[in-house]
Design a binder for these strands. Structure first.
Ligand SMILES: [Mn+2]
Ligand SMILES: [Mn+2]
Ligand SMILES: [Zn+2]
Ligand SMILES: [Zn+2]
Lengths: 143, 143
DNA sequence: AAGCTTATTGAGATTGAATCTCAGTCTAAG
DNA sequence: CTTAGACTGAGATTCAATCTCAATAAGCTT
């Protein structure tokens, strides 16, 4: 199954005079197989396990490329290191984070998106991405 | 001028069996004098300039206390280090960040707050804080 | 005011994520 | 096939943040 994300990456690299190397290919393929949020070290560990030989440096160098290509996005940190998730081909969503058990709830609200557009317009601001994180207790933890 | 924030800090410390030291006092007083967002190193530098002798370690140790006391809050990072702002005694607000010039626009929307409450309720989630950051171009940068 | 318990401090060491260096390697265009 | 120059990996480096621990000081108690 030819992935549209790989195509997008290839085209992005081409547009920047960058090259699609074995390492970058291994990284994006691994990212596409993942579900949920991930971090660079996790990626490095798993890729080694897979037999792929990709250095930590290449992981850290490739992540910003995937971000700039619009394929992944940084998810703000509960932890102290960066977390990412696949976005190209997925529906946009925001997050609720349970501060007790760590559960992550993904949600989407059309009304929320429209309201943000209106608020931007009121400031003459041209928004082109946003992050909304709500912290609190999930349904299981809050009784 | 007696600051309600200092009172809150004193009470918080007391409730935790912690002590109000010269260093902690110098730090909160400096924070109360600041406008806008700040980071720990900036605080350290400015306090030294003021003649106060407060170590970097004490800055980093006091910040989480101020956060737990509800006096300051972390503002998510454009940079790679943490930024904070005073919240106790100020109206809650969210941020728009201009990715070109770095301008920070603070805004508040009652409707946005209510909508978030509704979304939390729909998930059985008890939200108790949130961060909304909209990235894009400010009115000056977007023409 | 003096004594005492224990939280706190500062200087410097340490951690850990992220970035950089650079000689050897590989991609992709011609 | 050749070649220019992008890319890689190992290890060094940076930098924010945290930790260590002996010396201090906060704030009770008498
Ligand atoms: Mn997500
Ligand atoms: Mn603010
Ligand atoms: Zn939970
Ligand atoms: Zn701007």
């Amino acid at each position: 199954m030819a992935k549209k994300q790989k195509k997008a990456f290839r085209e992005f690299l081409e547009s920047q005079n960058l090259r699609l190397t074995r390492e970058r290919e291994a990284i994006i393929e691994h990212v596409l197989r993942k579900h949920g949020h991930f971090d660079p070290e996790e990626l490095h560990f798993e890729l080694k396990g897979n037999g792929a030989k990709v250095s930590r440096a290449s992981i850290y160098r490739t992540i910003p490329l995937l971000v700039n290509a619009g394929i992944i996005e940084k998810v703000e940190n509960t932890d102290k290191h960066a977390h990412y998730e696949l976005i190209l081909g997925r529906k946009h969503h925001d997050h609720m984070l349970c501060t007790r058990c760590g559960k992550v709830i993904e949600f989407y609200s059309e009304g929320l998106e429209r309201l943000q557009d209106r608020l931007c317009k009121a400031e003459g601001f041209k928004g082109n991405s946003h992050t909304l994180e709500i912290k609190g207790l999930c349904s299981r933890c809050n009784r």
